[in-house]
């Protein structure tokens, strides 16, 4: 073979780009089968079935009121706090049904962390916010607590910005910082799963981008399920996407497929904005 300019030659045996790489062997972390949800007599979720893979980002999209937030909150049973709700079907995490009678909901919520749409830090110091989950978990060792707080703040890409003011009020932080603080707070108790309900919808574009990059990094260690009304965000950030409408799961597939060539016309209409 004639040797030409090798300066910009590349290895010819590189595998196909990471974007195209198919997930070969992925474990299912959350398994949902025929899940129904009722607010009193009103059924808001109908027979939802899907498998959420481990250590990937799964996005739930759909128009307002389609049930995606309700579904998300069912995973860590936060809907229990609302009176008059009823469920049918099964949501299991690592094979265990979260609605098992007698299940310790408190322990469940430690394994499944949640970040809300509007950041809600406690009116305490930055340190105390992150340490809250540890304190109620019974941790007394101050040294260990400081270690975990630092690790969590680093994981949430916030450490450098707050390391000099751990004792300052959390309310003094900017909106984006507060949201990352809430993420650090959730990470401190070492959950397996992170549920995020429109985490960036109240933030400006730069802060949103920081959160999205953070989610990308976090998925190496956590299974993430994110509800978003911003479709482009779902495309940017997730590996799998589920499209909900009127309480039903319309389509669930790889994000690439959903956004390039969805199988259902309803999905395509929603994504292209022809909806409604």
């Amino acid at each position: 073979m004639t040797t030409l300019d090798f300066e910009r030659r590349v290895e010819t045996n590189r595998p196909v780009t990471s974007m195209q790489q198919q997930a070969a062997d992925v474990r299912t972390k959350i398994s949902v089968r025929d899940f129904d949800f009722y607010y009193g007599e009103n059924q808001v979720l109908h027979g939802i079935s899907l498998e959420i893979p481990e250590k990937q980002v799964t996005a739930l999209i759909g128009p307002s009121g389609c049930g995606k937030s309700t579904f998300l909150r069912s995973i860590n049973r936060m809907n229990d706090t609302i009176p008059g709700t009823r469920v049918g079907g099964v949501i299991s995490i690592d094979g265990l049904d979260v609605n098992t009678p007698g299940l310790d909901v408190v322990a469940l919520r430690r394994r499944v962390g949640m970040v809300f749409q509007k950041s809600n830090p406690f009116p305490k110091s930055v340190f105390e916010n992150v340490a809250y989950g540890l304190r109620i978990g019974g941790l007394r060792d101050r040294g260990l607590m400081e270690e975990i707080v630092e690790k969590s703040l680093r994981r949430a890409a916030l450490w450098d910005e707050v390391k000099d003011r751990l004792n300052a009020s959390a309310l003094a932080l900017s909106g984006g910082q507060q949201q990352r603080l809430c993420i650090a707070r959730a990470l401190a108790v070492d959950p397996d799963i992170l549920l995020m309900d429109e985490p960036a919808s109240a933030l400006d574009p730069i802060a949103t981008q920081k959160i999205e990059e953070l989610i990308w990094e976090l998925k190496d260690n956590y299974t993430i399920v994110i509800v978003t009304h911003n479709m482009q965000q779902a495309a940017r950030v997730s590996d799998r996407t589920a499209f909900f409408m009127l309480g039903k799961l319309v389509e669930y597939d790889d994000t690439n497929t959903i956004f390039m060539n969805p199988a259902q016309k309803m999905t395509e209409d929603y994504i292209t904005g022809r909806f409604g």
Binding site: V16, T17, M19, Q20, Q232, A235, R236, T255, N256, F259, M260
Partner: peptide
């Protein structure tokens, strides 16, 4: 064909 597919994916994901 590979490059076409990869490019479209990048557009879809990244905008």
């Amino acid at each position: 064909l590979d490059i076409d597919a990869a490019t479209l994916q990048l557009i879809a994901k990244m905008q």
